Amino acid sequence: MTELETAPRAPEHFTAVFDRHYRDIYAYVARRLGPDLAEDVASETFLTAFDRRQSYDPARGDARPWLFGIASNLVARHVRAESRRYKALARAGGREPRETEFHADAIAGRLDAAAVRGRLATALAGLPEPVRAVLLLVAWAGLSQQEAAEALGIPAGTARSRLHRARQEMRQALGAEIEMDE
Rank of each mutant, 00 (worst) to 15 (best):
V17A: 08
G34K: 02
A16R: 10
S43Y: 11
L33T: 03
L37F: 03
F18Y: 13
P35W: 15
A27T: 05
R31E: 09
V29P: 00
R23S: 14
A30D: 02
R32F: 06
R20G: 13
D24C: 07
A27F: 04
A42D: 00
P35R: 15
F18P: 01
P35T: 13
E39N: 12
A27R: 15
R20N: 14
E12R: 10
A42R: 00
Y26A: 06
V29Q: 01
V41M: 06
F18I: 13
A10R: 13
A16W: 05
R23W: 08
I25K: 07
Y26E: 08
T15E: 15
Y28P: 01
A27G: 14
Y22M: 09
P35Y: 13
R9S: 12
Y22K: 05
A42V: 00
E12I: 05
I25Y: 10
Y22A: 14
L37Q: 03
T15W: 08
R20D: 15
A10L: 12
V17N: 00
V29L: 07
R20S: 11
H21Y: 15
F18Q: 07
Y22C: 07
H13E: 09
H13T: 09
V29N: 04
E39Y: 10
D19M: 14
L33S: 03
Y22S: 09
R32V: 06
G34M: 12
Y28D: 02
E39K: 08
R9A: 14
D24N: 10
D24S: 13
D24R: 14
Y22W: 12
E39F: 11
D24F: 04
H21G: 04
D36Y: 13
V17R: 01
T15Y: 11
E39R: 14
A16K: 07
H13N: 08
R23F: 07
G34A: 11
R23N: 12
Y22L: 13
V41R: 01
R9W: 09
F14N: 01
D40A: 13
P35A: 10
P11I: 04
A42F: 00
A38Q: 07
R31V: 02
D40S: 13
F18R: 11
F14L: 06
V17T: 06
A38V: 04
R9D: 12
D36F: 14
E12A: 11
A38G: 04
E44T: 09
A16G: 10
P11W: 05
R32Y: 05
V17M: 07
Y26M: 05
A16L: 12
E12T: 04
F18T: 06
L37E: 03
R9E: 04
R32W: 07
A27S: 15
F18D: 06
V17C: 07
